[in-house]
């Protein structure tokens, strides 16, 4: 338990394996993820980044045939303990998906969805405030403040992605998992998103899967390189991109594999 007493470690994983109908996609990973920082997962397509990311909020539970083993602790607490309710865990560990998936509801209702479910607002004014703050934090407020009643699905792709981030922030999670959040965005929307992530890391533990080396280098403090279900190398981002210890990492970063 020594590593957990250290204040800035959020997650500790020991020998984590993920398999789909018996086929192993993540093959025994040990990793520690720091709080209030950005950790990037990189690696070739199909190497298990998304599968591993979904371990942290137990989204794998919703996939039929998917099994997770190993010891995964958040603030020292086993998040796969038999008595632990994944629904409560997910209120603390938010997730943003590759394709923006706003609900077919108004912008306001999209953001208010989580707080309403978890009873976070005492009154309408409370809820208004949560929605306002979340949209503001997500950098979307100025663009939508006059049309909160419009459908969330009517926004542009980049706006939708910030909307779902606002939606995730609204339940005040401790962690935000992002699975290729910028892959459907243009460079300008991506830049905005990166600025946002930069700000969010002051308060949240952020884990981001990305296919863009440049993006990982720009926004993350630590980078983990995965290959075929293994964690090949995990280090400070500067280290990984300037002086990787492993040949496989170097090859991937230089675009020689993958």
């Amino acid at each position: 338990m020594t590593e957990n007493t250290s204040k800035n470690i959020k997650f500790t994983c020991r020998d984590v394996r993920v398999s789909y109908s018996g086929k192993e996609a993540v093959k025994g990973i040990d990793i520690e993820i720091a709080d209030r920082s950005v950790t990037a997962f990189i690696g070739p397509s199909g190497c298990g980044k998304s599968s591993f990311l979904r371990v942290f909020n137990r989204m794998n539970d919703t996939i039929p045939g998917c099994a997770v083993t190993g010891d995964i602790r958040m603030d020292g607490e086993d998040i796969y303990a038999p008595g632990l309710d994944p629904v409560l865990l997910r209120a603390r560990v938010g997730m943003v998906f590759q394709k923006p998936n706003p609900f077919p509801k108004s912008i306001y209702d999209n953001v208010a969805y989580g707080p309403r479910i978890h009873g976070l607002a005492e009154s309408k004014a409370d809820l208004d405030e949560i929605v306002h703050n979340s949209l503001k934090r997500a950098g979307l407020w100025d663009e939508v403040k006059d049309r909160l009643k419009d459908s969330g699905t009517g926004l542009s792709g980049g706006q939708q992605q910030r909307l779902v981030i606002a939606r995730a922030i609204a339940v005040s999670p401790e962690v935000i998992l992002m699975d290729e959040p910028a892959s459907a965005l243009d460079p300008i929307a991506t830049a905005k998103l990166e600025v946002l992530i930069e700000e969010l890391k002051e308060k949240f533990c952020i884990v981001i899967v990305t296919h863009s080396m440049a993006q990982a280098a720009r926004i993350s403090q630590k980078t983990a390189f995965f290959h075929m279900g293994d964690l090949v190398e995990y280090d400070e981002t500067d280290q990984i991109f300037t002086n990787p210890a492993e040949l496989r990492t170097q090859d991937y970063i230089m675009g020689r594999t993958g």
């Binding site: 997910r90 938010g94 998906f97 609900f103 969805y113 479910i117 978890h118």
Partner: peptide, 21 residues
Amino acid sequence: QSLRDGSYALGATRSETMIKV
């Protein structure tokens, strides 16, 4: 499915997801 995932990821239960989303 992505809408369901979005709802589950916010800590909604199955019936909440079904009724509200």
